[in-house]
Amino acid sequence: MARMKFFCDAERCIECNACVTACKNEHEVPWGVNRRRVVTIKDGEQGERSLSVACMHCSDAPCATVCPVDCFYTTGDGIVLHDKDICIGCGYCFYACPFGAPQFPEDAAFASRGKMDKCTFCAGGPEDDHTSDEYKKYGRNRLSEGKLPLCAEMCATKALLAGDADVVADIYRKRIINRGSSAFNWGVNDLNLGG
């Protein structure tokens, strides 16, 4: 069975944020929620790189470990999903997640968080596939239509890869081989050629 994974190739990501926009649009996520974001490190300096990050669908997910109501489950494809009917919006998954993937609808001070929302690998939720209930809570279920996550499909530079881990790894390995071992082929980085 497939193990679904995201991978972002930092040498290709150009911080265009198309993945973020595509995701928001496809799933019509509520205000204040961004299931995916692009983070740029060393912005404006030598060695600037960007990475697109969302839920990484961990094999041993900390969110699932810590959830007080045990609302997470892993699908046969290795996708970590959660049941919004069970979620109580406590925010513990947000504290536990290394990637900051869990999101909460924005609310004013004193308000409790609403129910958690996160990337579903475009695989919907526990509801029956393609029901309006599923769409309202979790967004589009593309996987059951045989499509991959829209963010990766949209990526202009093919930096963001999504799919079966073996296939993704294969693609990336080929890229590395093509780039060769020389650090210079990685693009100008933390180099100081003297003088």
Binding site: E15, R37, V39, I41, C97
Partner: peptide, 17 residues
């Protein structure tokens, strides 16, 4: 070395906590 992100929010520039 926290990065920056177009997505505004607390800690949105942190890639791994």
């Amino acid at each position: 070395g926290v990065g920056i992100s177009q997505v505004r929010g607390v800690d949105s520039g942190v890639l791994i906590n």
